[in-house]
Nucleic acid binder design. Structure first.
Length: 89
DNA sequence: CCCCTGACACTTA
DNA sequence: ATAAGTGCCAGGG
């Protein structure tokens, strides 16, 4: 990871951190916003390995709109629960 | 540099 | 609608 806010990782975290409350973005969207529309795989990989508290990873869902995975409280279920509370669902 | 892993997306059956 | 297979990318050892 670079000191100057670089690397797909930092970029993705930044993008996800900018997701408005009550909204959800697909991994593909995040990857695209991060600069690599085909790196949705890497996005999930980064999130699972680097769970940054400043990054609302729970707002990132699959292209179908399903929650997908989550390494936080309650796992996928908790993720959906949070989205429901925020009004995303 | 090579190998493995992974919270996905898309197509076809 | 569900299942299975394939392709993609980046991070970490």
């Amino acid at each position: 990871m670079q000191l100057r806010t670089s690397s797909f990782k930092s970029r993705v975290l930044g993008v996800v951190a900018e997701i408005p409350k009550g909204e959800t973005r697909t991994y593909k969207q995040v990857a695209a916003l991060a600069g690599s529309p085909n790196a949705y795989r890497a996005v999930g990989n980064i999130m699972s390995k680097n769970n940054n508290p400043k990054v609302p990873c729970h707002r990132v869902v699959k292209s179908d709109g399903t929650a997908g995975g989550y390494s936080g409280r309650g796992g996928r279920a908790g993720k959906v629960n949070i989205l429901k509370k925020e009004g995303a669902i």
